[in-house]
Design a protein around this nucleic acid. Structure first.
Length: 305
DNA sequence: AAGAGACTCAACCGCCAGACT
DNA sequence: TAGTCTGGCGGTTGAGTCTCT
């Protein structure tokens, strides 16, 4: 590639692993002068490397703000959450993990996280359950959700049978539907999953619901199949107002149950699914979703994006 | 102990977009 | 407008290490 001419000079440039001596030269130069123009650095610092190689070495190894060591469980969970939304946008994912590089995250994903997800029965590409039996009673294969995450703001659209529905940001005034659910009840085949963020198990959920104490996060691709619940960063719920009729929602053994500790993500409820199963009237519009239970005098409205 | 296979991770490759000429 | 340069990105590679038999 002609574009790579700068890295394939006539003069012999070193390749492969960096020696301590080279590291020192690069570190000393950048510490003194900053990196400036990367392509000029090899000459100025006395290295026989191409500028790209210097840049990579600095970003992935020499930068002083790098966090060393193995990833924490929280970091791994966050990567999975972010990957569900962003896909293989490693640099964007890395932007949410201070001190971690895109290369490091990519390696972790390819060597470890993909495998872990598969072991949990989740397709690492789609973040959907691998087994279709895990899917609930909605026609989820007709759903086509897409999502994006940037600057701590989630944007998403989700269409169902051609109708754009069902992605919401939490309105702080909207009651948290999971706050008063007792588990387990008779099964409606619902899956309760986390939204976006770190996951914590719901303490009251018995192990029969999910053998593993940690919850699985399914993220956007399963939005219409899940209930999302948001917590503040300090662990408190946005609202603990009970919605008694939601106590009728249950999970199957093996379903994933979790709570997202939000990153500006809110409640998502598969309103149609809930409405059908509970025989509740439901209204879906482009800008809000409402559930009603007139007999109990309850209603819940969520604003869409 | 040794060989094979699996795994990890640093580094390279090729492509792209934006800036510059 | 077209060509070139540069930085940045995601995919891939391969050497080194680990684990298993």
């Amino acid at each position: 590639m002609g574009r790579n001419a700068s890295c394939q000079q006539k003069q012999k440039l070193r390749k492969g692993l960096w020696s301590p001596d080279e590291d020192e030269k690069l570190l000393n130069y950048i510490t003194k002068h900053g990196h400036g123009c990367w392509s000029a650095i090899p000459k100025l610092s006395g290295l026989q490397r191409c500028g790209k190689s210097c840049r990579l070495r600095w970003i992935n190894y020499l930068r002083p703000d790098l966090k060393r060591g193995t990833f924490t469980q929280e970091e791994e969970d966050l990567i999975i959450e972010l990957h569900a939304v962003l896909g293989n946008k490693w640099s964007q994912i890395a932007a949410h993990l201070p001190g971690r590089t895109d290369n490091e995250i990519k390696n972790l994903w390819n060597s470890s996280l993909k495998k872990k997800l598969r072991q949990r029965g989740i397709d690492p590409t789609t973040h959907k359950p691998i087994s279709e039996e895990n899917m609930s009673l909605t026609n989820t294969d007709e759903l086509s959700p897409t999502g994006a995450y940037a600057d701590n703001k989630c944007t998403a659209t989700c269409s169902y049978k051609g109708t754009p529905v069902d992605m919401f940001l939490l309105d702080d005034n909207v009651p948290n539907p999971l706050s008063n659910i007792s588990f387990p009840l008779s099964s409606h085949g619902f899956e309760v999953s986390s939204g976006f963020g770190y996951d914590n198990p719901i303490p009251s959920i018995p192990s029969v619901v999910h053998q593993d104490s940690s919850s699985e996060s399914l993220g956007f691709p399963n939005v219409a199949n899940t209930i999302w619940c948001d917590m503040r960063q300090d662990g408190s719920f946005f609202d603990s107002t009970p919605l008694p009729w939601l106590e009728e929602i249950t999970t199957n053994e093996g379903d994933q149950v979790g709570i997202g500790t939000g990153i500006d993500m809110g409640i998502g409820i598969d309103a149609e699914c809930i409405g059908q199963s509970l025989s509740l009237p439901i209204e879906m519009q482009n800008h809000r979703v409402s559930l009603f239970d007139d007999s109990k005098g309850l209603s819940m409205t969520q604003q869409l994006f």
